[in-house]
């Protein structure tokens, strides 16, 4: 059994706000289509389950030197 801690669930996101000139809100608007893409959501969810070590923030790939 893996000793790796399961990745924490992503924090709940607020409902996307209406598009304004504020940069962050523009970004939320842009992500809407991708967030609504169920198939993409499932691929990312499966990736989390399959490769927890890769997704561990503590693990930093280092080169051999």
């Amino acid at each position: 059994m893996s000793e790796q801690k399961p990745p924490e669930k992503p924090p709940k996101k607020e409902e996307p706000k209406k598009k304004k000139k504020n940069g962050e809100e523009e970004e939320e608007e842009e992500e809407k289509d991708l967030e609504a893409d169920e198939e993409l959501g499932n691929i990312l969810k499966n990736a989390r389950n399959r490769d927890p070590q890769e997704l561990n923030q503590e693990y930093r790939q280092k080169s051999g030197e």
């Binding site: 990745p7 992503p10 993409l40 990736a47």
Partner: peptide
């Protein structure tokens, strides 16, 4: 990374993982 902000670095690496289960190939 925006869709998975708690594991942004990990997902960016997983996208470039060269293996049949690498995220790019899944996409």
């Amino acid at each position: 990374t925006k869709l998975q902000p708690d594991a942004a670095l990990g997902f960016s690496k997983l996208f470039r993982k060269v293996a049949s289960d690498g995220l790019y190939y899944e996409l």
